[in-house]
Every structure is written in structure tokens, then in C-alpha cells.
């Protein structure tokens, strides 16, 4: 689904990603660990194609298509969706309107989707205007639900979120990744799952709280612009909690 080859990225002439190779398969959820400033957010921003992140070497493929230099909207339309950490406020743009636009031509029930993230009372508010940390997350998830992407880029789902919201954010993130399957009379849940296409995920986490909710398949540490230490996400988390990122330094040298 997503294939990154020898990706080098510079911001203002300073190299922040130094040869990243990464492949995420269809339906796979990949967890990215790493200390502050290691390049995690830069990787997500580069995948989305934002200005200021200059790819100096390497390629990004999405479903076989080279998107290394594709404009952001094209990547979004191909099926890459991103949850922002600090999205901008846009005056006069109602949340409802933006959610509708995220769906493009598809029919969506904005109210119904908003209820799922407990956000129906915010639909008439300007997008991100005075939203708290938890509200931003719920708004971002709502937009992603409408967008229905094939690959979700999720930058720190737990940041700025209280415990109660964390549960909601975690569950919704899971339903976006795995599909929302409910018991039905005509079809077993197993059959439903088999029919449903699964969404891939690339999730940045510091605390690992999100691992309590989503089914993480693989994980890796990004350290100083290099990827290292591929392992099961829970094992990485436990290791970091005990030893910090010291070992990564050894590993890379």
C-alpha cells in the first residue's frame, strides 16, 4: 500500500530524514516511536506533501503510484488521510461544511457520524475555533471518517487528551482502521470483516496509550532521521519505558 524508499528530506537545508525505507501493507497498522525532534512529524508531513519538506532523494509509492512530488490534494484523493496535531482555525468555515467537503462526492450522514465522536454539538462552530485538545482530536477523526481514507496518518492521538476522551479517540481510531462491524442477522461478523477492506495506519505515539485500543501489527523507532529497531510495538514500548532511547544510539552507530 505505502512504500517508502531511501527517503531523504530537508527543511530549510537541514536534513531531517536520512534515508527512510518503510513498507506498510494493506490493512496493517504501523506504530512509529521516537524521541522529540527525531523526525516523526516530518515524515508524516512529507507523506502528505506539505510545503517546506523537500525530498532530496528517494521515493514514495502509494498503491504502486509514485507520489513523491504529487500535490497534497491528489494524495488525499488517492486515499491518504491525516489527523493533525495542531490544525489551524478557519474563520467562517463551519465544521459541518468541512466534514461534508471531506466526503467529496460520496453521500454521508454528517450528523450520524458526528454523534459517533460525540461532536454533534460542534457542527455549527467554526472549524477548530477554540477547540480543546480532545475536541480537536474528535474533529479530526470526524473529518477522517468522512474522508474514508485507505491509509491514515495519525500524529500523536493521545496528546492533549484526557482519559475520558482517550477512550473515545481510541475506539474511533480503531473503527476507522478496522471498520465498524456490528452483529447482523444476515451475515456473521467474520464474514462482514472478510468483505470489508481494511484501512492501513501509520501512528506516531509517545505514551503508547493508543496501543490499548488499536490492533498494532508492527512498530519501529525513528531516531535522528533514521529508522531502526523493528519489533512488535508493545515490546518496543516496554523497552523504551525501561531504558529510554539509549539503545537506539548504540544500534545506529
Amino acid at each position: 500500500m505505502l512504500k517508502i524508499e531511501n527517503l531523504h528530506v530537508e527543511i530549510d537545508g537541514r536534513e531531517v530524514l536520512k534515508g527512510i525505507d518503510l513498507e506498510i501493507n494493506e490493512g496493517e497498522t504501523f506504530i512509529l516511536f521516537g524521541p522529540n525532534g527525531s523526525g516523526k512529524t516530518s515524515l508524516l508531513m512529507t507523506l502528505m506533501g506539505f510545503s517546506g519538506y523537500e525530498v532530496t532523494k528517494g521515493s514514495i509509492f502509494f498503491n504502486g503510484k509514485d507520489i513523491t512530488h504529487a500535490p497534497t490534494y491528489e494524495r488525499a484523493r488517492l486515499g491518504i488521510g491525516m489527523s493533525f496535531q495542531r490544525p489551524p482555525t478557519i474563520h467562517g468555515l463551519r465544521t459541518r461544511h468541512l466534514v461534508q467537503m471531506c466526503a467529496r462526492e460520496r453521500e454521508v450522514d454528517v450528523d450520524e457520524m458526528a454523534r459517533k465522536v460525540n461532536f454533534d454539538h460542534f457542527l455549527e462552530r467554526d472549524i477548530n475555533a477554540g477547540f480543546s485538545g480532545g475536541e480537536i482530536k474528535r474533529s479530526e477523526l470526524l473529518q477522517l471518517m468522512a474522508q474514508n481514507p485507505r491509509l491514515v496518518l495519525f500524529d500523536e492521538p493521545e496528546s492533549g487528551v484526557d482519559l475520558e476522551n482517550m477512550q473515545l479517540v481510541g475506539k474511533v481510531a480503531r473503527s476507522i482502521l478496522d471498520g465498524d462491524v456490528q452483529p447482523r442477522a444476515d451475515l456473521s461478523m467474520k464474514e462482514q470483516k472478510a468483505q470489508k477492506r481494511r484501512t492501513s495506519g501509520l501512528i506516531i505515539t509517545h505514551t503508547g496509550y493508543i496501543l490499548d485500543y488499536v490492533n498494532a501489527d508492527r512498530g519501529q523507532v525513528l531516531y535522528n532521521g533514521h529508522l531502526c529497531c523493528e519489533a512488535r510495538p508493545r515490546d518496543i514500548l516496554e523497552h523504551i519505558q525501561e531504558y529510554g532511547y539509549q539503545e537506539c544510539v548504540k544500534c545506529l552507530n
Binding site: A76, P88, I90, H91, G92, L93, Q143, Q147
Partner: peptide, 28 residues
């Protein structure tokens, strides 16, 4: 703000659509 344009582009709006959406909001 470029940041606002890119936010909307990440939702699938091209640059013209994003710009006109922001201007409409401004004049709301």
C-alpha cells in the same frame, strides 16, 4: 495563511477550492 490552504488540501480540496473556501469563510 498557507497553513490553512494546506489543511484543506489534505482533505482533498485543490488549491483553488481551498482558497475560495477560506475567502468565503472570511466574508461569512
Amino acid at each position: 495563511a498557507q497553513e490553512e490552504i494546506e489543511y484543506l488540501m489534505a482533505r482533498g480540496l485543490d488549491e483553488d477550492e481551498a482558497t475560495s473556501t477560506i475567502v468565503r469563510g472570511f466574508l461569512n
